[in-house]
């Protein structure tokens, strides 16, 4: 399988590549349009700040390319948020692939939402082999509200979108590459889509 990780200097690119290696899969890192278009599957990682990440994508013309992709696509953490319409983080316009907002946590609880939390209402082949309330690792201060595209949710303290699916675009707010065996299973499931 020709698997490409979108390389735009996101912090967790290496971690995602290592997680795939542990599954015995070699992925290509690339920001090249032709290479990404030719991939069987695309993984889109991301950590850090939304506006900075959008600037990196624009500098590589990836903001034009990514919305046109038709193969199975998996956005991770900030990579999920970037697929949405607009973020409260730095009042940033995003890739606008999934018509959803990204909001800041408005809660008495600690922000960032950091650590292991449960995913539930699992509604996708992405979660084959997982149980309701399995634990995954989160670290984020912004979230996507529940919507018709939500395929899993987590409570902090209100429920938010743990994962999304819109056409060929899958996405997770948590870090499957850092979520132990449950995370590995999710990556494996994406590869099997």
């Amino acid at each position: 399988m020709n698997l490409v990780i979108v390389d735009y200097k996101a912090g967790n690119v290496q971690s995602v590549q290592f997680a795939l290696e542990r599954l015995g899969v070699q992925a290509t890192l690339s920001a090249d349009a032709e290479t990404i278009k030719a991939a069987d599957k695309v993984i889109f990682p991301g950590v850090g700040q939304a506006a900075a990440a959008m600037a990196q994508l624009k500098a590589r013309n990836l903001d034009k390319l990514l919305p046109t992709l038709e193969q199975p696509f998996f956005g991770v953490c900030l990579g999920m948020q970037l697929l949405c319409q607009h973020s409260e983080e730095g009042d940033t316009d995003l890739l606008n692939i999934i018509p959803l907002p990204v909001k800041h946590f408005d809660t008495e609880l600690k922000v960032p939402h950091m650590g292991w939390n449960e995913i539930e209402q699992l509604q996708s082949p992405l979660f084959a082999g997982l149980q309701e309330k399995d634990y995954v690792y989160y670290v984020h201060s912004y979230y996507v509200p529940l919507s018709q595209y939500t395929i899993a949710q987590t409570y902090y303290p209100a429920p938010f979108s743990a994962a999304l699916q819109y056409k060929n675009f899958y996405a997770a707010q948590f870090h499957p590459e850092k979520s132990g065996p449950a995370g590995s299973q999710i990556l494996k499931n994406f590869l099997a889509l």
Partner: peptide, 30 residues
């Protein structure tokens, strides 16, 4: 980073953006 599937933080002697960039690019989470 190659071998473990949980997050990890690294510290000690970090004093610049360049120091942090190296550590994050090598797979540290924090």
């Amino acid at each position: 980073a190659r071998h473990i599937d949980i997050p990890f933080t690294v510290g000690g002697g970090i004093s610049s953006v360049a120091d942090v960039e190296v550590l994050l690019q090598n797979g540290a989470d924090k």
